[in-house]
């Protein structure tokens, strides 16, 4: 009776989401396993990511030149995971900027992202022990219009001439407009996005590009916190399982058995 109160007689779970559900639970299990290993002090090796290794050098260069650093958190909303990953990177970058006592300009397209970034920046400067040098006016909203925002950020680049430009998050057709303007002013550019179609533009115009998953790994990589690094090891574990499944799929396809596609087609 109680059960029927919440659920009608029809299906409760979506039948075509079974494999996704199992995969999510498996991934969660992998993260919890690597997290417990990390907390026990296991060594978590992560390959070097040149774009992130260059962050300190890029901020140091801007400080030496007495020029500001521009951080663009992408054009998507806070509901986008890429934007949250970008805000995590912003926190790590801002902490380093605060240590160097440089100026950080963060223009926004989404007012919610601006509000979240305000807290991120406050915390980063506090962690660095220099909350008094944070200029909250440098974290500002421009417009929600895509090309209006692009024009404004390009204008800031040309007028303020930042020595370092970070383009991290979700970008659309404006990616090349931003990256080429940054390139034209001679700034060191570190880009990162999970928008596959914008990656070639960033690779062509920026000094370093974080490709896809590297954007999500950046926060953990820069912090070196074991809790955060554990998720990278969990992703590697799942990649290993995927490798095995791909090989099984290949072998089965060669022998004319397509049953694996029926299972994973769900």
């Amino acid at each position: 009776m109680i059960f029927n109160f919440f659920i009608s007689s029809d299906a409760f779970f979506k039948a075509d989401h079974e494999v996704t559900l199992i995969a999510c639970l498996l991934f969660m299990g992998a993260i919890l396993y690597t997290l417990s290993k990390a907390r026990r002090g296991a060594d978590l090796y992560i390959r070097s990511i040149p774009g992130l290794d260059a962050v300190n050098e890029a901020i140091g260069r801007a400080t030496e030149m007495g020029k500001p650093i521009l951080y663009c958190p992408g054009l998507s909303s806070a509901a986008d995971v890429a934007t949250l990953a970008s805000l995590n990177i912003l926190g790590r970058v801002a902490q380093r900027v605060a240590n160097y006592e440089s100026r950080l300009i963060v223009p926004h397209r989404d007012p919610i992202v601006m509000t979240v970034a305000k807290e991120t920046l406050k915390d980063a400067y506090l962690q660095a022990g220099k909350p008094e040098i944070l200029n909250e006016e440098d974290n500002f909203f421009i417009t929600e219009d895509q090309f209006g925002y692009t024009a404004a950020v390009n204008g800031i680049m040309v007028r303020e001439r930042p020595a370092t430009v970070f383009l991290q998050g979700m970008f659309f057709a404006e990616s090349l407009l931003l990256a080429e303007t940054g390139n034209s002013i001679g700034a060191i550019q570190i880009a990162g996005t999970d928008a596959v179609h914008q990656l070639p533009f960033f690779v062509a115009s920026c000094d370093y590009t974080l490709i896809g998953e590297e954007l999500y790994a950046a926060g953990a990589y820069l912090s070196k916190a074991p809790d955060l690094m554990s998720s990278l090891k969990a992703a590697d574990l799942i990649k290993g399982i995927l490798w095995v499944l791909i090989v099984i799929g290949l072998v089965l396809t060669f022998v004319g058995n397509a049953s694996i596609f029926e299972v994973f087609g769900k």
Partner: peptide
């Protein structure tokens, strides 16, 4: 890679492992 990265980030945020953004 993006799918795994997104899922890992979402799980970290849901379970409060990653909270830099707030």
């Amino acid at each position: 890679g993006i799918g795994l990265g997104m899922t890992a980030t979402a799980i970290k945020i849901i379970f409060g492992i990653e909270r830099t953004y707030m």
